[in-house]
Design a protein around this nucleic acid. Sequence first.
DNA 1: CAGGATCCCTCTAGATACTG
DNA 2: CAGTATCTAGAGGGATCCTG
Lengths: 133, 133
Amino acid sequence: MSRRNTDVPSVVSAPLPSPVPSEEYERCPVTDVLRRVGDKWTVLVIVLLGRRPYRFNELHRDIENISQRMLTRTLRGLETDGLVHREVFPTVPPSVEYSLTPLGRSLLVPLSALADWVIDHRGEIAAARHAAQ
Amino acid sequence: MSRRNTDVPSVVSAPLPSPVPSEEYERCPVTDVLRRVGDKWTVLVIVLLGRRPYRFNELHRDIENISQRMLTRTLRGLETDGLVHREVFPTVPPSVEYSLTPLGRSLLVPLSALADWVIDHRGEIAAARHAAQ
DNA sequence: CAGGATCCCTCTAGATACTG
DNA sequence: CAGTATCTAGAGGGATCCTG
């Protein structure tokens, strides 16, 4: 892979066309995933499921203030993208277990790196925001 | 730092209280940064500025279809968080140059890792979405 | 050149109520 | 238990016009 900036590896420093055609970013897969992961609940759900499988109401209890609707939507979105596995046990009453797929588990690695960056630099960000008022 | 899951380092596997108190995620700095970076234009602007400094209309030309308003808002947001530096040259007509701060440049590293993950797995994600219809 | 101001529209989060 | 259905407020995003 060609790289212009040796300080920053990977696709982020790969050449882009100029101007960037709209299809390249409106459907940009990176932004696509960032938007999924950047919503209000998804990261928290992924982190919890990274520890162990959860049942629906277990998540509902452990994530304070999430509505049933948003929990359902978050889980459905993750399931649609193949990040979460949903297993229904035909018991009475019904029981559904959610867990990370191998794909979802692999996402924890870069997500964790980004989370570490935020933790390491949140002071600087807060200071910049404060300075900007 | 304590870790439960040795496969996945860092804060993502650190213990969380149960239930997670609302302040812990509503103002969660990780989600906060993810939401900034997860909007429609921010990543593209960061990536471009990671190559070289840009002037306003240069970005406006190179990012096809972005409105002036959204470019301004995106740059202001990045500036507020200390990720982008804005330098005004008092020429006639006025000239403004945008560049990444060291903080912004450091963000390229985990952002790049996440982008690489997406590139490596976008086939799986697309397949999962297709399978889910 | 680099925006600010204004209006508008869509999309999503969230609350509430109901159900197999 | 594990959801669905409906409604609303607000944010995100865009088009257009205007200016130091």
